[in-house]
Design a binder for these strands. Structure first.
Lengths: 338, 338
DNA sequence: TTGTATGCGTTATCAT
DNA sequence: ATGATAACGCATACAA
């Protein structure tokens, strides 16, 4: 691999000049620029990213930390990552995919982390990743509210979880539903906490009773029940005993489908007997489902893009004024399940 | 941030010794080791990854290049990435997510690429990414066969595409189907080419006619028809004209659901009137669909893990004997759609 | 087992 | 506008 000295020698300029031709940090005459570029092409030269990083102290990469464990992307994650990668590359940044595996790995943090900043997905209460980032002084943006005890004012991007639940409850209540079951996300995630509160508050506002059997949380990702979440709950609560639940809010598409299956087994029709409402989910799946599923669009791709944009401000790449906490509006998409 | 000299001074050793304590490349006495570690903790020191990379010429990161464009992960991609990240982290490697966006970005290849190797998903004929990697002498492994003109003997991981199609056709033919429609992946992908050949050959072997209306290819990812692929084709071919198609092979879950929807609209029952077979797809979706879909399991997570393992051999991280081209066995999972 | 000196390839500072 | 040179923080060959 050719180095900067080779180019400098052949182009009869100093290495400083070659450096400037590539970094554009100060002007170079058209003449020299072209000579350098020509020689570089000839030698197949490109600046060494590592050496550059060593002196600039910028890696031009951001980390994307993903929910830990033997994770399983949902449609939400997909589109979110989409938004992140696209927006990052737009600013010249690369994305380092990252997870905190449950099993011990060879090099956890044996050396510094070669990223300029990070996007943290689905923070949990007292999130380990956030602790680490904070300790290492790496700027980060979370998607969802941070609830670590010692950290305040963390920049974040989030949906309006409270309002979202109000909107959903209102929507269902207006259709006459009084007993609504909420199949929430995992209880450790901060968004799930916010949504829970929103749900309960919205129900109370409407003078609707919230009973224990009406709120459930997705099991840990590695548990056996994970894949079946929604099925057993629906069977239990809507089967036999007749607790009077007439509407179900499901956390994601997988959960919704599980629930839908249980409903079919129980001989309950959607939406005639029971309404099914999905939070987010894969658009094409929602549409192609039978019946198509009414859902709350969380706009994950937008969440991803905004989180990167916010991070770019933290990194000083973008300098116009920008809020510290961005709320991405979520909207109800009516289909045929409610 | 503390540097190696600070630690050396406080621990009263040379920087070379500090270096060795962390890299473990040569023994250090227990005494010294502990003193160094203790001081490091005290100063919150960790070796600088960039500086280390500059001299070792290893970034401890691999690239994962994803189908270009405003891409859209499918269940296959999800699980694949899962396998890649998990296996990579097991060997102490990080994963740099990478895409070649359609829109022009700021820094395409303005500087060298800070990865030790790459995994290339879904190679196309004359793949640009492969050209670049090859030019830059970056070891890479493809998932699917390489068809670039100037590249031979590229290490790869793949399913047995030919055999797979034989198995599927045999399976369907044994159930009495003689006219089978194949909703294949995008025609640029090498796997789709292989599967096409396999399909045609398998049909011929069984003396079954392959007509033009029986083979379709997924439109480009940015086109309007992309999301609807499967729907229009099913409507056209199985509607009105009655071309006698009694079985459909769909490339992925999205396509299958589209097709399923069209079948419902046509009043055709699955599997009574038409058999529907899915290649890969999201397990939980397949199961929860109604009817549950019989499918070919491509084992994407295994593909991901194996591709990383193969790459590790290319990088000299793993040294035992290992084949250059790995075939991951795919198996039929029978459900209720055929 | 440990210390010393050199180099990795670039950017930045200070000249000119 | 360009050149010369000192960092950047570490690993490693060689010396002790």
């Amino acid at each position: 691999m050719a180095k900067i000295d080779d180019v400098a020698r052949l182009a009869k300029v100093s290495k400083g000049t070659v450096s400037n031709v590539f970094s554009q940090k100060r002007r170079t005459s058209k003449e020299v620029t072209e000579r350098v570029l020509s020689v570089s092409r000839q030698l197949n030269y490109v600046p060494n990213h590592i050496a550059r990083s060593l002196v600039t102290k910028k890696t031009m990469a951001i980390g994307l930390t993903i929910p830990h464990g033997n994770f399983f992307f949902s449609a939400f994650h997909n589109q979110f990552i989409n938004g992140v990668v696209l927006e990052a590359s737009y600013h010249g940044y690369r994305v380092l995919l990252d997870m905190i595996p449950t099993q011990q790995v060879k090099t956890p943090f044996l050396s510094s982390y070669p990223i300029d900043g990070a996007v943290v997905m689905s923070p949990t209460t007292d999130d380990e990743r956030i602790r680490l980032l904070h300790m290492d002084d790496i700027p980060f943006v979370t998607v969802g509210r941070v609830m670590n005890a010692d950290i305040e004012n963390a920049p974040s991007v989030d949906n309006d979880n409270e309002r979202m639940m109000h909107k959903i409850v209102r929507y269902l209540a207006d259709k006459g539903h009084r007993s609504i079951m909420f199949l929430n996300a995992n209880e450790l995630m901060t968004v799930s906490i916010d949504r829970n509160e929103g749900f309960i508050r919205a129900m109370e506002e409407r003078r609707l009773q919230v009973e224990a059997h009406m709120i459930h949380h997705k099991p840990a990702i590695l548990s056996n029940e994970y894949m079946d979440y929604g099925y057993a709950e629906t069977l239990n609560v809507l089967g036999g005993q007749g607790r009077g639940v007439t509407a179900i809010i499901a956390d994601d598409d997988r959960t919704a489908f599980s629930s839908l299956n249980a409903l079919k087994e129980l001989g309950l029709r959607v939406p005639e007997d029971v309404a099914l409402f999905v939070i987010c989910g894969d658009l094409s799946m929602m549409v192609q489902s039978n019946p198509s599923l009414t859902s709350m669009d969380l706009r994950p791709s937008e969440l991803g893009a905004q989180s990167v944009r916010l991070l770019m401000h933290k990194l000083g790449v973008l300098t116009d004024h920008f809020p510290e906490n961005i709320v991405v509006e979520s909207t109800i998409v009516e289909r045929n399940s409610c």
